[in-house]
Design a protein around this nucleic acid. Structure first.
Lengths: 221, 221
DNA sequence: TAGCATCGATTGTTCTACAAAACTAGATCC
DNA sequence: GGATCTAGTTTTGTAGAACAATCGATGCTA
């Protein structure tokens, strides 16, 4: 007899973590922005203690940077960070794709994400295209059936989102990748996981180059 | 002009995180053990706030489990967790090995770890064998040149250590794997990364089975 | 202009306090 | 006997005040 599933439980602190995460991924807290304790205590109407605990959680996730005695600021990935992030993406995504069993249940989610992205692209809703693209890659990694891999990957992807926001990688730039997602999916479904991984590797390389290009244009390190 | 490298900086809290990490990996805090705030506040002579911040950090790393209103306890991986951990290890380690460039500088560290393990095994210092084994796999993942991948992998390996402690996987059981580490290294150095990855995959599968066997013998879920 | 001392602001840490949730141990009921 | 209820105790969640330590900026001196 399993005890109560305590999913509905929401401490003040965990909801603060959620709220901050939303603001970060929505870009309302800009990369590099200083987050002073006093201002956020006022803004969210929580105590310093609660806020600092939330800071530690998000810091460990890589979304916030904490420098002792200098406070915390929104992570601001530089080009070295972007390169590092794409190394992780290649290692994880390609590996998962190669090892995924044929007809993994979550492959359906990948297909759904591709369809959603195509429809959004047709409607020129680039924001939705970006969201669907994230869904595709999350669905891909979920085929590992590993909650830890999903968690690590999610953190890295959230950090990459900060990189996009920093140099204003416009959402419509993701459009060309919709078809390549389809290609990766087709190769996987066509029982060619090795080929699918090869396509994905090329995909990620091009994506990385595009982001680094945006950094160069923005004159950022 | 780079500012001061603030590596020597040690806030009270970060040193507490370090101390707790040591106790956890040394097994002085047993898996599943309840960590009450009052007792640890007394033991480490820190305030509740500082302790709770350290709890959040270690919780996010997976070493502590935090259940709202019930406090934190040392993570106590079950068989599902072990399976999950080995999925991550296979995905990360094999992927890194396949992609590592020929003659990566850190390959030397792998070789050193193998030598250290052999010497320790000859001296029947099984604890040192285990440490050297950890060094080998850390060196392997460091060939990814990705600090994020190293960080995620380190967290997973620390959690696996808790699993060992939980069911008392004896250190000398690692001995047979010393030669297999050598085999993986030889394949990599022999310009056969694919073969090295294949060997490592088998290695990890056997290792996983051994741990799960220990769980079964201990009557643990 | 390049240090350098000073001061104000921010963070690190402790302490106290109290509300809320969880645990404990009897008491009660079937 | 076992389950359930209840009241009291313990522990955690959160707020807030206070102070030390450090940082950053300001203005001064050479």
């Amino acid at each position: 007899m399993v005890p109560v599933t305590r999913l509905g439980l929401m401490t003040h602190e965990s909801s603060l973590v959620n709220r901050l995460t939303e603001l970060l991924t929505a870009g309302e807290l800009r990369p590099g922005e200083k987050l002073s304790e006093a201002s956020l205590v006022e803004r969210f109407d929580v105590s310093r203690n609660t806020l600092r605990e939330a800071f530690r959680v998000l810091g460990e996730q890589g979304l916030l940077q904490h420098i002792p005695h200098r406070g915390v600021s929104v992570a601001s990935p530089n080009t070295a960070d972007v390169v590092d992030i794409y190394r992780v993406r290649r290692a994880i995504e390609c590996s998962v794709l190669e090892r995924a069993p044929r007809n993994h249940p979550h492959a359906v989610h990948m297909a759904e994400a591709v369809e959603q992205a195509k429809a959004a692209a047709a409607a020129e809703d680039w924001l939705l295209v970006g969201t669907a693209n994230m869904s595709f890659h999350n669905a891909l990694v979920s085929m590992s059936d590993s909650v830890r891999l999903m968690r690590s990957f999610g953190n890295v992807l959230a950090e990459l989102r900060l990189a996009f926001l920093k140099v204003e990688v416009l959402d419509f730039l993701h459009a060309p990748f919709v078809d390549r997602n389809q290609g990766v999916l087709d190769a996987y479904l066509g029982e060619s996981p090795a080929e699918a991984a090869r396509l994905l590797e090329g995909y990620l390389g091009d994506s990385e180059r595009q982001v680094l290009g945006a950094y160069a244009r923005a004159g950022q390190a």
